[in-house]
Design a protein around this nucleic acid. Structure first.
Length: 555
RNA sequence: AGUGCGAUGGUGUAACGGUAGCAUCACAGACUCUGACUCUGUUUGUCUAGGUUCGAAUCCUAGUCGCACUACCA
């Protein structure tokens, strides 16, 4: 209340409607997916918008499957869509299907025929296209346009009864073949498809077109605010025309600009290509911008909701930096993920003054952001794995990690001082040698020393292993759809790298699919569903911000 | 070409005739047993040209640029 948050243009419209007493102040939205594919982040935004608006204004939001094309639609998609919406944290009020309304829609069509506003056309698809006209030229009226009401009624009934083959006849609205808006040049209302429908089976062989079905479905459900993306703006006059001619509940359509994200593609067609051409492992590949992919990658639903909120909505073209999404993901994971230690690219560190074979157990805080996060035991011994990049033979200035003569803190354990290292014949460093300072024990440090660097480690004798999958952006360019040539030419060949055997602290071996942790200093990781009893698989959700990497880049 | 929609820092979004703000990014610093987190500070913007007005991102006019629309898809 104290802080005034500005409204987006839809909230403004809704608040004005409420203030004006429109629909008695009732707000009812709907999310209308077509069950022919998986939901992606663009849908997630629409879900947050529609369900969010309903929640904010004490209204309702229906889930309605727009299943008017039996050729492409399947029940399998219905289930995945419902699952994704629930995972995102929303529950719909009514669950409906456009196919629920096939009878009503048919009756509405009869009404329009009787009013002389619809007719059965024998033209072929090619003829209809050819007589449609163009942006500058008016179309031509169909020779079947002026059939009598009785004839239209009979032919339409015969279409429904299955007397005709696919494409032989259509039902068209009789509007205006010279209208500047091509959608109003006698648009198709029904086409014949002798196809099995996922819900109505073989009951129907005529199916309504989107423009005829969508608005009437909204109206039947008494949707007050029907929100869709900008490309439907030209459809609005038609949406209104049907509702007005039928005299049914006046739902209204509002359009907003769809969200685009950098370094990915969003169209179902393109995503399907990535799957079919095996550029990714499936719709739920963690590199995909699908809801299922992001879930598997470890993006929290709350982060997706926050992203949607932060980005906001408007009516202008946009492409949102994926960095903003990653920021939201980190913000949530930072609060909820336990810190653990894992060494991705190991080199051995030998503590020369620590007795070989001796072991010690340290208590490590699970999450400094969570006072109730508890602690876990971490075994320590004279030989540890550390990251190869945490030692340098010839360190640059401001390198706070290990180098001969340098001291660092081993996280949750001792301060060590580097005395030397070993190399193999090829010049690769094979061992780093250090001595530890017993008085610097974590939690009981009397050394008085302050060291600038802290590094993570895993005891060699106690280490377990896991597979780690590192993901990077799927494309090399910000907007692959907007580049010359095929978008697939811009796929990043290094978007996935697999580390088959990473050393992890023993406690981590208990992790279960879906668990999320921070590998200290390396990033946030989620246990993948490919994990088995014997082999854990971690997906890197997102890296940590890395100030040192930037420093190095600057040179 | 016609119609429609749009144009505010690198990105996204506010300001509804009266101080161009917020988030992210970038940069600088503080803090730090994660070069993380957190905190502080800084740089960067109203498409152009006219007009109305005491005052314009906002209103008017003309241009420029971008996007959408000519599927028996949604």
């Amino acid at each position: 209340m104290s802080e005034e948050k500005s409204l987006n243009f839809l909230e403004e419209i809704i608040e004005n409607d409420i203030a004006a007493g429109k629909n008695n102040g009732r707000v009812h939205t709907r999310f209308p997916p077509e069950p022919n594919g998986y939901l992606h982040i663009g849908h997630a935004t629409s879900i947050c918008l529609n369900f969010g608006l309903a929640k904010k204004y004490n209204g309702k939001c229906n889930l309605r499957f727009d299943d008017t094309n039996p050729v492409t639609e399947e029940t399998e998609y219905v289930e995945s869509i419902k699952n994704d919406i629930r995972w995102l944290g929303f529950e719909w009020d009514g669950e409906y299907y456009a196919s629920d309304y096939f009878d009503k829609l048919y009756d509405f069509a009869v009404v329009l025929i009787k009013k002389g506003l619809a007719y059965v056309d024998d033209s072929t698809a090619e003829q209809i296209a050819a007589t449609k006209g163009s942006f500058e030229k008016p179309g031509q009226e169909s020779p079947y346009r002026n059939r009598s009401v009785e004839e239209n009624l009979q032919l339409f009934a015969e279409m429904k009864a299955g007397k005709y083959n696919d494409g032989e006849k259509t039902l068209r609205a009789k509007i205006d073949m010279a209208h500047p808006n091509l959608l109003l040049r006698d648009p198709l209302m029904y086409r014949i498809k002798h196809e099995h429908h996922h819900r109505t089976g073989d009951t129907w062989c005529i199916y309504p077109m989107y423009d005829y079905a969508h608005g009437q479905s909204d109206s039947i459900e008494e949707i007050t605010h029907s929100i869709c993306t900008l490309e439907f703006i030209h459809h609005r006059p038609l949406y209104n025309w049907f509702i007005e001619q039928l005299g049914i509940f006046p739902s209204h359509q509002y359009e907003f600009a769809r969200r685009n994200l950098t370094y990915t593609v969003m169209s179902k067609r393109k995503l399907l290509q990535l799957v079919n051409d095996k550029h990714v492992s499936g719709w739920d590949d963690p590199r995909m911008p699908t809801v299922s992919g992001m879930r598997r990658r470890g993006y929290p639903a709350a982060a997706l909701r926050q992203f949607s909120d932060t980005v906001g909505i408007a009516k202008r073209e946009n492409i949102v930096d994926v960095g903003l999404l990653e920021f939201c993901v980190r913000e949530h994971l930072n609060k909820t993920s336990n810190r653990v230690m894992a060494v991705l690219d190991p080199v051995k560190l030998v503590i020369t003054n620590y007795p070989a074979g001796q072991e010690d157990i340290f208590e490590a805080e699970n999450n400094p952001e969570d006072p109730n996060g508890g602690a876990r035991p971490i075994p320590f011994s004279s030989e540890l794995w550390i990251e190869r990049e945490d030692f340098m033979e010839n360190p640059p200035k401001k390198f706070f990690r290990l180098a001969v003569g340098n001291m660092v803190r081993l996280k949750s354990a001792y301060i060590v001082k580097c005395a030397g290292f070993k190399k193999d014949d090829a010049g690769n460093i094979t061992e780093v040698h250090c001595s530890y300072l017993p008085e610097s024990r974590s939690g009981n440090d009397t050394s008085g020393l302050v060291v600038k660097g802290t590094i993570h480690w895993v005891s060699v004798a106690h280490a377990r292993t896991a597979e780690v999958r590192l993901y990077d952006r799927l494309f090399k360019v910000e907007d692959p759809s907007n580049e010359d040539g095929d978008f697939k030419d811009y796929i990043n060949p290094d978007s996935l790298s697999v580390l088959p055997s990473v050393y992890i602290e023993p406690e981590l071996a208990k992790a279960k699919p879906g668990d999320q942790v921070q590998f200290m200093r390396k990033g946030y990781f989620a246990v993948d569903t490919d994990s088995t009893e014997n082999k854990l698989v971690f997906n890197r959700t997102v890296t940590l911000k890395d100030a040192w990497a930037k420093e190095v880049k600057k040179g």
